[in-house]
Each structure stands twice: as C-alpha cells, then as structure tokens.
Design a protein around this nucleic acid. Sequence first.
DNA 1: AGGCAAAATTGACATTCATCAATTTTTATG
DNA 2: CATAAAAATTGATGAATGTCAATTTTGCCT
Lengths: 228, 228
Amino acid sequence: MRAELGKYFLNNKNFLEKLPEKISAIMQAGIVRFRVKKGRVLFQENSFPKGIYILKKGKVKIYSVNRDGREQIMYIYCPGDIFGYRPLLYEGTHPVSAAALEESTCDLIPREIFIELVEKSPELMRVMLRLVSSEFPVWVNKINVFAQQSVKSRVALGLLIVEKKYKVKGQPTEINLSRDDFAAYVGTVKETLVRMLKEFKEKGILETQGRKIRILKPGALEKIAEIG
Amino acid sequence: MRAELGKYFLNNKNFLEKLPEKISAIMQAGIVRFRVKKGRVLFQENSFPKGIYILKKGKVKIYSVNRDGREQIMYIYCPGDIFGYRPLLYEGTHPVSAAALEESTCDLIPREIFIELVEKSPELMRVMLRLVSSEFPVWVNKINVFAQQSVKSRVALGLLIVEKKYKVKGQPTEINLSRDDFAAYVGTVKETLVRMLKEFKEKGILETQGRKIRILKPGALEKIAEIG
DNA sequence: AGGCAAAATTGACATTCATCAATTTTTATG
DNA sequence: CATAAAAATTGATGAATGTCAATTTTGCCT
C-alpha cells in the first residue's frame, strides 16, 4: 500500500545535517528565529529573497495568485523542510509567495551569509545542486497530475499527500486544512471539493468533524487516485 | 505585445559558452555526435542517464506516459538547448522520456566525463546550480496553467510558445507539430484540440495548410491565453 | 455562554470537454 | 503515380465541473 507517494514529496529535510560541521556551525551562528501567525505572509511573489528558511514548527504553503485572484498552492512545507532558497541561487525574485497555514516557527539564514558560504564551500554547493536537481521529478509529477487527472483523482491524491504531511507518530492523523486551501492545493473550487469529500464520506472512505478530516480507507483513495 | 512568454522558456542555451575555456575544451573533446530520426526515442523514463545532451539541430520533446498510455509533453527543446542533465546531478533515473519530434542532431557528453568535471570544477558546478535552480519558475508557471486555465487558454498559450520555438529569422513561422503531439503538449485530446484550432481559424486568428499552422493574430491569442 | 463573522455546505444550472464512431484528407511507399 | 496507412476532422452525446445564490454550521471573541 501507500504506493508511490514519495514521488510527490521534496527531499528537503535535515538540510543542515548533510553539511560539514564547519559550514553548519557558521550557518547556525547566523540564524534568526521568528514566529508567524496563521495566515501571515513570509514573502511575496516577485520580491527579492532575504535568505533561506528552515521550518521548525507548523506548516507553510508556497502559492501563486492568478489574475482573477484565484490561488494555487504549489507545495506545503513541514517541520524540517527548507524553502525559499531557489531565487537566491539564480539571483532572481521569488516566483511564489509563502504563508503560514498555522502558527509556525521559522529559522532564517540571511542572504549574505548563505551566499558567501555557497561561493566558498564546494560541499555546500554540492548539497544545493543535489537538492535542487532532485526536485524536478516532483514538479513533473505534479504537472502530469494536473494535466491529466480528474478533479476526483486529484482530491483523492491530495488527501493521501496531506494526510502524510499531517501525520504525527502514535496519533490518529487529522487533516486540518481549510476547504479553500485544500481546493487551492488540488486545483479546484471549494464547492467541487466539498462535493467530492461528501461522496467519499458517504462511501465510508473518510469521516469529518467540522473542518477536520480523518481518512478511514486509504486503499480506496489510492485506487481513485490511480496510484494504487 | 508578446507579454510574459519568457516565463515558459528554460534558459538553457549556449551552455558551453558560459564555461571557462579549459572546461569546455575537455567537454568538447569528449563529445559524441549522433543523429536521430523523427519519432526515435533518446532515452526512456526510469533509465539511468548516459550523459548530458546538447541539441544541435531539430526538436526534442521530453514527456511521460500515464497508465492509460496517454502522453504528456513536459517541454520541447530547440537547437542550443541542453537536456537530460538533472538525473546525473542527483544520481537518479530519468523522470521523463525524450524523443525526436523531427530529424535531429545531438551532442552527447558522456556521463563519466561530465560527472568528473562537475566534481573538479567549481565553475561548472556553479553554472549547473544556476541553471537548475532557475528552472523552478518555469515549472511553477506550467503547474499554474494546467491547474487553472481552460483548454482553450492552454491551446492559445501553447500556440504562442510553440510559434516562438519554430521561429526562424526572416521567414514566416510555420508550426509543424502533429495534432497528437500538440494535444499532448497542452494537456488535452486530439479532437478537442482540432475544435479549438477550427474556432481560431474561423475567427481569422490563424490559418492552416495541412498540419502546418500559421498564426495571423498573436494579439488575439494573448488575450485568450490571458497573458495579453 | 452568547452572538457574530467566517467557513462550509447544498442546490440549480450552464458550460466545458472527453469519448466513441465515422469520414475525409494527407502522407508515405512501392 | 497509385494506393494503403496514418493523421486529421467532424458529429453526436453524456459526464464532469465551475458559477451563482442561498443556507447552515463552526469557531472565535468578549
């Protein structure tokens, strides 16, 4: 079971631990820790990067907003993930915005420190190169899903992905995302999403308590998502 | 006019020229040149990379095929573009297949040569890091388009993108892609694509000669693609 | 605990788009 | 140049899904 889900996850965790002691020590020293409230924006699309972020607690979405104001969520980051580093590496602006999905804590490694270290340390450059190039399959899979799968499949897949993100060891997993955010994540509108959830609920695949979703039959979702 | 189209193009050209003389000389020495006939596959999804490719002549698509056998084209490469380098950098397999859309000529820099150079040369590593990280916005935009735009918008946008790819200085541009490939590029089926083309033709936006398409009113397409 | 704003849900409806089947046109081959 | 095979086009049809409007439920704040 739970086939293939890894295809949709970036391999972004424990970044600092992959670095030589010396480098990570310098980084640690420069870190600025801060908190963000639910809904608060960390950086805006088209802005210049202030540094790289490491999420310590909470959930952060990166997303873009189209002309009609409709939002599309590209990815949801979990504790341990780093994000916001790409535009630093090509000296451009953020192609997406980032905002906290819940009360979160972040470490920021300031731009100057990070850039200088990348230039000086081949090991760090190697780690970044590996990190960034390994992301491609994730985006490819996402494009495939959006280009070819029905909304129902995407909701099923989205549920499986998000469940994994919200999983905490030893506890029943409760997905706690607003319907609007979930819809923006799977590329549909709130109303359609709600109807899919209702259908799954009636089939006994999941149950809801207020906005919270609990998955009962992941195997059924895998079939609907066509990853079974 | 022609607003924003750059967002959908990788900045992949003239790769060798961005390198120090010494490095590019070693690469040049190792290059294997070969030809591929129309339709022929260069590498298969899930295979291990043989090296990096530089397209000299023709057009190459990267694509994946889903369970139902339906194809999705991720990107179309033009002369000067390099491709197939990402899995080399993270030591994985190709997440997509590559095939020639027309009779093409390619240079292959063999895996061992390339990898050794990347490890030895910080300049090359820097170039690769910049290259790979700058790709992210292109994939983000593609995901946005597939997640949120109608098929008609995507066909309009696809026409503008592909026209640019087929443009040859001083000649009227003729798009020469099969309907199946075009449909796989914009994420629809052949029949729907044909209907959109017919509609655009009736509105005087384009004309066709056999499979060849010539765009008459790019401005109208920009409006339909919502990038105008 | 009560009240209010935000979020979620439901219903009705129109539109978009994929599917299937048939036909015509184009291209490739001997 | 004739002819078969491949590609493109058209038509008919139904299912999927977005939109608009209303209603209900939830969560938060004092």
